[in-house]
Design a protein around this nucleic acid. Structure first.
Ligand SMILES: [Zn+2]
Ligand SMILES: [Zn+2]
Ligand SMILES: [Zn+2]
Ligand SMILES: [Zn+2]
Lengths: 170, 170
DNA sequence: TTGAATATGTTATAACATAACATTATACAC
DNA sequence: GTGTATAATGTTATGTTATAACATATTCAA
C-alpha cells in the first residue's frame, strides 16, 4: 500500500454501512463513555447513560423530543428538561454532538480525542451522519480564518449530501 | 504588490468595520436584489423587500421574530408566516442566508455569484457576521468529502470567534 | 374574462429549548 | 454519624422558532 493510499485511508474512515454490527458501536461507545467520565471525575448517571444509549440507537441524529418520546413510550413521565440537561452534560464531556442544521444530537465517534471542533457528513437520503475529521480541511479552515484576522473559538461544519451506500443503491 | 499579497487580499476581503458607511451596503444590496429578481423573473414584492431591508439593517444576523417585531412596532399585525415566506423567497433567490447556529438570517454579501454554499465568520462579541469565500477551503472541503465517497449537495460552515475589530478593541 | 398560477391573509399548532424554583441524592469535613 | 455544601433531578411554566392548513386576493396570459 502506498503512502498516499495510507494517508487517504487514515483521513477517510468508512462511512457507517447499513448492515454493520451496530451493537458493537453502542457497546464501545458506552464503554468509552464510562472511562472518560471516570477519568474526568464526572458522573454518568442513569438518565445520562439512558440518553447516551438513545443517541446511539443509530447513526442518525435524534431529536431531544424523540429521546423523550422513547422514555415516555411505556407511560413514563420524564420532562424535557431532564433530557436537555443530560444532553448538555454529554456534550460538555465530549460524548455527544449537536447537529445544528437538524436540531438533533448524535453520539461522538471520537470520544476522548478532545475535539469540540467536529465536522459532519449528513446523508439526506438515509439520515446517517458521520464525522469527517480531515486534517487538510482543518488546516485550510484555520488558515482561511486567520487570513481574515479572525480568532476562532468553535466551528459548525455540516455537509449535506448523499452517502456512498445510498448513492450505490440508487 | 506581490502576487501572494494579491491572492491573500482576494481571498480575504475586509471584515465589516464598526463605523463603515452601511447605508451604502444596504443601497447596493437592494439594487442588486432588484436586478437579480428582474433577471430571474421573480417578484420582489413589498413585503419581500421590507424583509430584505430588515435583514440588511446591520451585519448582525436577525431572527425572524425580530423582523416581525420591527414590522409590528407601530401597531401592525403581520403574522409570522408572512416573514417566513418572504425569507424563503429571499433564500431561494440567493439574496439571504440562514445562519443555522443562531436561527437567524443575514443578507447575502455575494448576490449573483450563485453560491448556495456560503461560509460564515460569526463574531461572538459584536455579532457581526461575514462571508468567508475561501477557494482553498472550498477545495479542501470538496476533496475531503469526495475521499469519503460522499456526494455534496449543500453545506453549513459557521465559524464562531472574535472579529479583528473586537480583538483590537479588547 | 376567465382560469391558472402566484402571493398574501388568517388561525392554529408543531417543534425545539430554557427559566425558575423545589426536592433529593452525594460527598466530605467534622 | 451529623451537619452541610454541592451536585443532580423533579416540576411547572413559559419562551422561541417554524410550519400546516385553508381562505382570499392579485396577476397575467390565453
Ligand atoms: Zn454503528
Ligand atoms: Zn445514506
Ligand atoms: Zn455594511
Ligand atoms: Zn466583533
Amino acid at each position: 500500500m502506498s503512502q498516499a493510499a495510507k494517508r487517504k485511508t487514515a483521513d477517510a474512515p468508512a462511512f457507517p454501512k447499513p448492515g454493520h454490527n451496530h451493537a458493537h458501536c453502542t457497546k464501545e461507545a458506552l464503554r468509552k463513555a464510562e472511562a472518560i467520565c471516570a477519568a474526568r471525575k464526572t458522573k454518568l448517571t442513569d438518565i445520562r447513560r439512558q440518553v447516551l444509549e438513545a443517541v446511539w440507537r443509530s447513526h442518525v441524529p435524534v431529536g431531544a423530543y424523540d429521546i423523550l418520546a422513547q422514555f415516555n413510550a411505556g407511560g413514563g413521565r420524564v420532562a424535557p428538561m431532564a433530557v436537555y440537561r443530560a444532553l448538555e452534560f454529554l456534550m460538555d464531556n465530549g460524548l455527544v454532538h449537536r447537529i445544528a442544521s437538524l436540531n438533533a444530537y448524535i453520539g461522538c465517534a471520537h470520544m476522548g480525542a478532545d475535539h469540540h471542533a467536529a465536522q459532519f457528513l449528513i446523508c439526506r437520503s438515509c439520515g446517517t451522519t458521520a464525522e469527517l475529521e480531515s486534517a487538510p480541511l482543518n488546516r485550510a479552515l484555520t488558515q482561511a480564518v486567520a487570513a481574515r484576522g479572525f480568532t476562532i473559538d468553535s466551528q459548525i461544519v455540516e455537509i449535506i449530501g448523499v452517502c456512498p451506500h445510498c448513492r450505490d443503491a440508487s
